[in-house]
Each structure stands twice: as C-alpha cells, then as structure tokens.
Design a protein around this nucleic acid. Structure first.
Lengths: 184, 184
DNA sequence: GTCTATATGATGATAGAC
DNA sequence: GTCTATCATCATATAGAC
C-alpha cells in the first residue's frame, strides 16, 4: 500500500543482512516491488533512506532488547536475556555492521544516528546493571558503566565471530563465557 | 616481485580501514603507486588480492597478539595484554570488519581464510586461559574455551562500539569492564 | 506518486603494444 | 612486467510525461 513503507522495510532487511554500501537502490526496489520513480520520489538520495534505516533499526533493536527483558525477575535475568540477543548471530547485528561500512561512516547524519543508537543501548544496559546490583543478583563491586559496555561488546563481538566462522556455536560460547564471568 | 608487495601492503591497509567491497582496485593502485597493467598482472581478479590480504592480516594480527603477550609474567597478564588490542579501536579490527563485508562472505576462499584466522585466535586465547588457570592468576572454575571466546568477543565488540560512537573511550570501558569481570 | 528514458561516473576488468 | 586504450556493467541518480 504505502510504497514508502515498503521501501523502508525492504531496506531495513537488506542493509541489515547484506550491508548498506553493498546493497544498491535497484536491489531495494526489486525487493520492495516498487519502481525507480517511486523510490526517488520518496528518497531523493540513497543516504536519505539509509538515515531512516539506521534510526529505525536502532529503535527496533532497543525495543526488542526491552521486550526480551520484560517480565524477568532479577536484573541479572534481564542481562541474561540481553546476552540472548546473539542467539541468532549469523545474520549479523541489526546495527553493528554499519560500524564497518564506509558508506555509513562517510555520511555525518548516518554516523550520528548510529552512534546515538549505541549510546542508547549502553545507557539501557547500565541502568539494568544498577538494578541487578540493587536487587543483589550481580556483584555490587562492579562498575555499572564498564560492565554494561563489556556486555554490549560481548554481544557485538559474538555477532562478528559467528559471521566470520560461519558457526552460531562460536557466538554461543562467547555469551556463555560472559555469563560465567558475570556470575563468577 | 616488488610491485606485488607494494600492492599487497596498500591493500592490507585500505581493506582494513575502509573495507574490502568499498575499496576499488583503482584506489589500491593509486596508494601503491602502480599502474593497472601491473596490478592485473599480479592479481587477475580483485578477489585474488583479497584472499592474500585476509590471510596476511590474519597472520599479522595473531603475530601482534603473541608479541604483546611476550614477556608477561602470568597468564592473566597475557590476557590483559590481549585486551589492550582494542587500545586503538577507531581504525577497526584488522580482520573483524571482513565479517560484515558482503564481498568477502560471497567468496568461499576469502570466507574460509577469515574463519581460519578467527579460529586460530580463539585457540591461542584458550591456551593462554589454561596457562592462567595453571599459574593461579585466573579462576580455575571458568571454562577455558568459553572464557577465551568471551574475551575475543569483548575485543571485537569494542572495535565495533568505538567505530559506531566515534569514541575510543567506549572501547576502553568495555575492556576495563571485562578485566574487572575476569578478576572478579 | 509513479512511469520510462536518459545521463554520468565508477567498477572491474581485457587487449595488445613495448 | 608494465603501459595505454578500451569495454561492459552497474550505481546513482535526473527529466519529463502521465
């Protein structure tokens, strides 16, 4: 119905799994089933679509992390739920791959949107670490900001390693190791 | 033989910092200071150069990790030295970015070389975790393979986060947090 | 808003002379 | 081994009709 929405949804999926620079407008049009005229009417330049996609994928990721944490009894359980984000790592992180995409980094608005998404995720995790320390499920000795950063890095790294090796089990090993350290 | 080396060295640097798919043969030629005739004489296709680069960057990374660990008194100190690999994260990991590059993943030989490099790093780290447990500098309760995978993931993730936010300090926070967990 | 036709430059090469 | 010329294809649009 709404071609603009069809374009964005296709681009979100394609930029996520195949990369921004390595996906052409033509591929997006084909996937969305819209013509060139429609595409360039809604997005004068590819970067305009990219900006929208980085923002939406960032929001989606934060929302899915919040959803995965919902209903968990302790702060530690919520952190465990976050580590589960790497449970299907072969497709790559919704936004992590953009950090290595020269086409994203070359465009200041896209770069800023990417940084903002990571900052929001870090802040969310830090607040959950504090909750976990408050309810006694995680050691009070840990620095909340650094612990949150480490957990986010483990998950992002797990995506990288899984894609590099082609084996999901390498991501699972990383998150299991991180959990053991957290509980240690 | 000299131009071949110049081409490889330029490509190693450019593919590392700017990505494989987003760097053209022409850019490599310009950086290396060689002409098209020379380039295609040594590397019939871009992927042939890419294969060489993935292998060399993998070997270089393993070698630099080994060098950083050398002379450290305990296994834990060697792991700390490895965490320091993310001390200059804004340029990206020598091989980590390839995991999100569609042009690398689409070529089986490049993909295999990438996976092999990660496997070698993981194996190296696992052996160091075992040494650390043997000398008492790291808890014997930890699973060596999972702990090694987690530490590698932290470092790879630190590169991703630093590039996404544009701030080295976000990588430093992640590795500091990981060290605290390891010592915890 | 969408269509088709057209334009410009880059990419990843190949051909043949030196 | 290296050079210059050439080439097909693709990426990224723009123009104007409907």
């Amino acid at each position: 119905m709404d071609n603009r929405r069809l374009i964005i949804d296709s681009a979100k999926k394609l930029f996520w799994h195949r990369g921004y620079s390595t996906t052409s407008p033509k591929q997006v049009m084909a996937d969305a089933g819209v013509g060139q005229g429609s595409f360039y009417h809604h997005f004068p330049a590819k970067a305009d679509l990219g900006h929208e996609v980085v923002q939406e994928n960032g929001r989606d990721l934060v929302a899915s992390v919040r959803a995965a944490m919902e209903g968990k009894a302790t702060g530690r359980d919520r952190l465990v739920a976050f580590l589960g984000s790497a449970g299907d790592a072969l497709g790559g992180c919704q936004i992590g791959g953009f950090a290595y995409d020269a086409g994203i980094l070359a465009e200041p608005p896209l770069r800023e949107a990417l940084g903002a998404a990571f900052t929001e995720l870090t802040d969310l995790l830090e607040s959950v670490v504090r909750e976990a320390q408050a309810d006694g499920s995680v050691s009070a000795k840990l620095d909340p900001a650094q612990t949150a950063a480490a957990l986010l890095a483990v998950v992002e790294g797990a995506f990288v390693i899984a894609r590099a090796t082609g084996r999901q089990s390498t991501a699972d090993a990383a998150t299991a190791g991180a959990l053991a350290l957290l509980d240690g």
